[in-house]
Design a protein around this nucleic acid. Structure first.
Lengths: 129, 129
DNA sequence: TTCTTTGCAAAGCGTTTGCACTAGA
DNA sequence: TCTAGTGCAAACGCTTTGCAAAGAA
C-alpha cells in the first residue's frame, strides 16, 4: 500500500484501464501501452497490473480463459463472457447478488464471505451470426 | 464422445474422482493414481482428466487458484473455497441459483445461457484457529 | 543519496503435445 | 489387424523474477 513511487508507465496503464470497457488481458495492455512506451516490457506491465490490483485501482477477472483480464472499473458489478467471441462485457443491470451468500450460508458450518460469479452466453453482436 | 477404448488408468482415475470429495488437482490425482500405476505419467493423467470432462464423467473447477481442480460428482452443485486452507468443499444446501440468470438477462441484449459461481470464506475447520 | 521502477532475459509453473511403443477391440 | 492409449520428454503459454541500470523523492 505504501512505498509507491510515481511512474509514467503505471499511470499510463491505469488510465488505459479506466478508459476502456474491453477488459484487456496483460498482453492487450502491453500492446496498447507500447504505443506510448515502445520499450516497455511485458514484465513491467505484469508488475504494474499486480500493483494496481493490490492498490484497489483495478480488478482482476478470471473467466476460465487461459489468461486473466483486468478492469479499471472497480465498482461492484458482474461480467458476461460470450462463448463465441470470448469478449467480456459489463452487466450494469444487476446491482448485487449478495443475497446468494445467505442461500449458501444456510446449513453451512463455515463462514461465507463472498462469491465470485460471471455469466456466459451469446453476446448481442454474435447473436445474429 | 465415441472411439473410446477401455483403459485401466482412466478407470482408476474415474473411480478415484467418484470416491473423493477433496476436488483434487491434476497433481493430486497423479499422486493418488501412482499408488496403483507407479509408472503412469502426468501427461496421461491430464489426457484422461480432459477425456472424462468431455464425456461428462467429471467436472472441471476453476477457483482462481493456479491450478484447476476436478470433481467426479457431476450433479449440479456449488462450491466453497476456504481462503485460509484453500480446500474446496461442496455446498449441497443450495439447489440452484438459476434465477440469477434472469436477473442478468434483464436489460441485456445478448443471450444468457448460464453462470459460473463459487463462494469463498472460512471453512469450519479453519474457523476456530 | 536512498529506495522504487524499469527493461531484459531467464526461469517458473501448469498443461499440452509429438513420438515410438503398448494394449484394447 | 487397426486404432486408441501410454510413458517419456520436450514444448507451450502465461506469469514471475533476478539483476544491473535508470528514475523518483
Amino acid at each position: 500500500m505504501a512505498n509507491l513511487k510515481y511512474s509514467k508507465q503505471r499511470e499510463t496503464i491505469k488510465e488505459y484501464l479506466r478508459s476502456t470497457t474491453e477488459h484487456p488481458t496483460a498482453d492487450m495492455v502491453y500492446d496498447k501501452v507500447r504505443e506510448t512506451f515502445p520499450n516497455i516490457s511485458l514484465g513491467t506491465v505484469y508488475r504494474n497490473l499486480n500493483l494496481l490490483v493490490n492498490e484497489g485501482e483495478a480488478i482482476r477477472i478470471s473467466c476460465g480463459d487461459s489468461s486473466e483480464r483486468f478492469d479499471g472499473n472497480t465498482s461492484n458489478h458482474y461480467h458476461f463472457m460470450c462463448t463465441k467471441c470470448h469478449r467480456v462485457s459489463d452487466l450494469f443491470n444487476i446491482e448485487s447478488l449478495d443475497h446468494i451468500n445467505a442461500l449458501a450460508a444456510n446449513n453451512f458450518n463455515g463462514v461465507i464471505e463472498g462469491h465470485v460469479a460471471y455469466f456466459y452466453g451469446i453476446c448481442e453482436e454474435c447473436k445474429g451470426k
